[in-house]
Design a protein around this nucleic acid. Structure first.
Lengths: 410, 410
DNA sequence: AGTAGTTAATTAATTATTTTATTAATTAAG
DNA sequence: CTTAATTAATAAAATAATTAATTAACTACT
């Protein structure tokens, strides 16, 4: 016993020798609780290759720090019943902020990946101005104050932003890059709480991968189908960033021989024909060419039609919308087939607004994958729709902050 | 001191407690020597967070086992000079077998990644028959016997084979899959030495990544340009396999809208227009259409022209060959641009037969990458030519066996 | 050349951890 | 209802590791 708390030790870079090893073992214990769930002293001792008294001592210290809880005795086939231990959900909390184009979702997550409070679709217009940044900070600040847990109980804030993000430096290259300091530091100073920035698709991906059904998968994609196309990659069981954190940019891979200029400045990007933006563009064009659709009736000016309207129309079985979403799916499938051939994943999760059309987009994607990727490889790959929807963004942001602060990931 | 050698402990799965921890620390010490080079006791103690006496004890045990060597004292700015320790090259050896279409390269590698003996271009025709397998075993067996080191000194054999390989099970899906047992086991039983199978491009990639210049890179591709296109991926500092070991299949990603049937059964594969095979096909076709080339003179029947002849012609500045290799490069570059966008690597190494044409293929690739991938992302990426050539295959095979047997990788 | 200042290696002392033994808690069988 | 069997938790003993102290080896400066 050093008398220092887990977090004090963690922040102390000078820690060596016995204290260092104890800290490492504590991290392993917490990591086990996070990834595998509750466990007995005997379980931990066996799995982490440490003696029972040692594990018992460290677990007790973690209980003293408020991070771990004794969940009481459990059933046993025979013999004395063991106590199980696990994370203490009420010890500390994390705030996940999921920034969309026209609104923000905020979630307060506990240690065990439950969103104890959420505030969805808070009006906010994502613009690259100091005013928008101020407004964002105010929204987060008010959310924390009204959450009733007290600011000191909030260990960290995770912010999901679209575009290229370098999470290590905390810089955003697409929004709020008008000051010298990295964005994460700016928010941190405004709110007085540790803040981590993350690419939105990657954060959602982390939420999906860490939640329930998919914790055993080691190599997976999460494909975020909104106006643009984003992706989060799980490779060898780790979130993959690439050299500067720009990995996963599937939207701008050159796969078409078209002349459509993408907003990235290049031609032939996947996004030009297989994104929500492309769907909207093509839909409006077809309406203007005289195609019939239930959407057309509601909009005297076809230019006013939004992506949401088209997706709504799919659900109402509008023929034009269904036809076009299938086309988009077919093209997306070709892009995904490329990835499957290269990375041989076990799981592909489709999420984002377009994924809400269910089989209408999923089946064309599946058939394109079968057509364009090698059977031996794509047989390994399960294709599923996200079932978490908007939750995944907030939850992923909270999880990333938790796991970074506990130094379970780097 | 348990009295057991490192390898005995390693094989003993039942090992627990103190002995287990000592074994782990020994692995870390060896790993340090492998990846970072020689070190003093003090260095190791600092880096591995273990005390000086403990490290000293374990290093001495490793010396007793013959794995580690005392390299004597080194210079120091002040104070008593430390002894440095490192791998003992002569303790054990590994055999790397690089199987090509019409020949085999064999190399005997020591603990420090030196090929102490090689036997290149041993005639061998890669066919999917028991006879070919027998001949292969004979070749390996003779190489070991004539190497002069004694069979007992050979710790393992690494075999590189093209096509899809599952290294964990030891199965090959493209060659020698006519028996029930995995191929690695068959060879192992024939020769009496532990054998590991690996995809050829991945093995070469490992050789390149582990050798000298590129040990600091964490995310890199090695692209193997032969008749087909293969790739080895290093992601987050680890060789990447995907779910079943099929990752890296860049040759069959669908990027063209052509009608050329690939040998994989699909259309539009990158290989159909951007491989050595495509180069040969197009070259012959152009000759038949009446194009002039120095190669044409040597072959009354254009159908007899081989890839090697065309590559030779490039070096002699044959205009047709140069024109076509640039075309191939441009198309390859587009495929590589896709990968760069998705994986944001820091290094791309071009290897294989086509890479021997140097700038003739490299420059078109580079310009296509600039054209098709995002500047922010491709600025991170260094594109280089392999300088190891045929050596990389043998060396990579040896390294993979070494690191697997030392349990440095899994 | 001698000495102060450094750093390595070794040894001794101390601290920490694991192992073993013991006690406690529980189930199932007789 | 008692006892044997089983497993957990705790305590004591034995072992092992670290830390601190010492000695050794070397440099540079006076």
């Amino acid at each position: 016993m050093t008398g220092h708390t887990f977090f004090e030790d963690l922040r102390n870079g000078e820690i060596t020798g016995v204290a260092y090893k104890n800290l490492q073992l504590k991290k392993q214990i917490l990591s086990w609780f996070v990834n595998t769930g509750n466990a007995t002293i005997a379980d931990l001792s066996r799995e982490l290759n440490a003696s029972v008294p040692k594990v018992g001592e460290l677990v007790n210290e973690l209980i003293t720090d408020g991070l771990v809880k004794d969940y009481g005795k459990i059933e046993a086939a025979a013999g004395r019943r063991p106590n199980v231990y696990g994370l203490e959900p009420d010890s500390f909390f994390f705030v996940g902020v999921d920034i969309k184009q026209y609104y923000v979702n905020l979630g307060l997550g506990d240690f065990r990946n439950n969103l104890v409070r959420t505030q969805e679709k808070v009006p906010f217009h994502l613009k690259n101005t100091p005013e928008a940044l101020n407004r964002l900070c105010d929204i987060i600040s008010e959310f924390i104050e009204t959450s009733g847990k007290g600011k000191r109980k909030v260990l960290g804030i995770g912010v999901n932003l679209s575009g290229r993000i370098n999470f290590k430096s905390g810089y955003s290259y697409s929004f709020f890059h008008f000051q010298e300091d990295p964005l994460s530091k700016v928010i941190e100073q405004r709110l007085g709480i540790s803040t981590f920035l993350e690419n939105d698709s990657r954060a959602v991906a982390y939420g999906e991968f860490s939640s329930g059904s998919y914790t055993h998968e080691k190599n997976a994609f999460f494909i975020n189908l909104e106006h643009g196309i984003g992706m989060g990659l799980l490779l060898n069981g780790q979130l993959y960033y690439g050299k500067s954190g720009f990995a996963g940019d599937i939207g701008h891979i050159p796969v078409f021989d078209n002349e459509i200029l993408c907003h990235c400045g290049k031609k032939g990007c996947l996004e030009t024909e297989a994104s929500g933006a492309a769907l909207t563009r093509i839909f409006i064009q077809r309406i203007r060419e005289g195609a019939s659709s239930i959407v057309a009736k509601r909009f005297p000016n076809p230019g006013d039609i939004q992506l949401e309207d088209i997706l709504e129309a799919v659900k109402q079985e509008d023929m034009l919308a269904i036809e076009l979403i299938a086309q988009i799916g077919e093209k997306l499938g070709r892009g995904i087939a490329i990835l499957i051939n290269i990375l041989n994943p076990e799981l592909v999760i489709l999420g984002g607004a377009l994924a809400s059309t269910g089989d209408y987009i999923m089946l064309p994607i599946r058939s394109a994958i079968n057509k364009y990727s090698l059977t031996l490889v794509n047989n390994d790959t399960r294709l599923v729709l996200s079932r978490k929807g908007e939750q995944a963004g907030m939850s992923g942001a909270c999880l990333l902050v938790r796991d970074r602060l506990l130094a379970l990931i780097d």
